[in-house]
Computed example of a mutant assay.
Amino acid sequence: MYIGITRQQLGENFRGSVRDFVNYLEKENEGKAPKLQELYFNQEEHGIDTERVIAEIDANTAKLKKRDPKFYSIVVSPSQRELEHIGNSPEKLKQYTRELMKAYAASFYRDREVTVKDILYFAKLERERTYSQRDREVRENQSYATQILELKQRIWAMENGEEQGNIEQLQERIRVLDRDAPHRQNGKRIVPGMAKEGHQSHIHIIVSRKDVTNTHSLSPGSKFRISETILNGSTVKQGFDRGRFYRGAEKTFDSKFGYRRNFVETYHARNLLDKDPKHFFALLLGLPTHEKQLARQLLFRAGVRVPTFPVNKTQLAHKALKQLKKGIGKALESGTIGI
Rank of each mutant, 00 (worst) to 15 (best):
Y2D: 10
L10G: 10
E12C: 09
S17H: 07
V18D: 02
E28L: 13
E28N: 09
N29F: 06
E30Y: 09
E30L: 13
G31Y: 07
K35H: 13
E38N: 12
R52S: 04
D58I: 14
K66D: 11
S79L: 06
N88Q: 10
S89I: 09
K102Q: 14
F108Q: 09
Y121V: 02
S132P: 00
S132H: 12
Q133D: 14
R136E: 12
A145H: 04
L151P: 05
K152V: 01
W156P: 02
I174F: 01
I190M: 05
A195T: 06
H202K: 07
I205E: 07
I206M: 11
T215Q: 15
H216N: 10
S217H: 07
G221N: 01
G233E: 07
E250A: 07
G258V: 10
G258A: 09
Y259C: 03
R260Y: 12
L272T: 00
H279L: 15
F281H: 01
L285N: 15
P288S: 10
H290P: 03
H290C: 08
L294P: 00
L298Q: 07
L299I: 09
A302Q: 09
G303R: 08
V306R: 02
T308M: 11
V311H: 03
N312F: 03
Q315W: 07
A320S: 12
T336G: 01
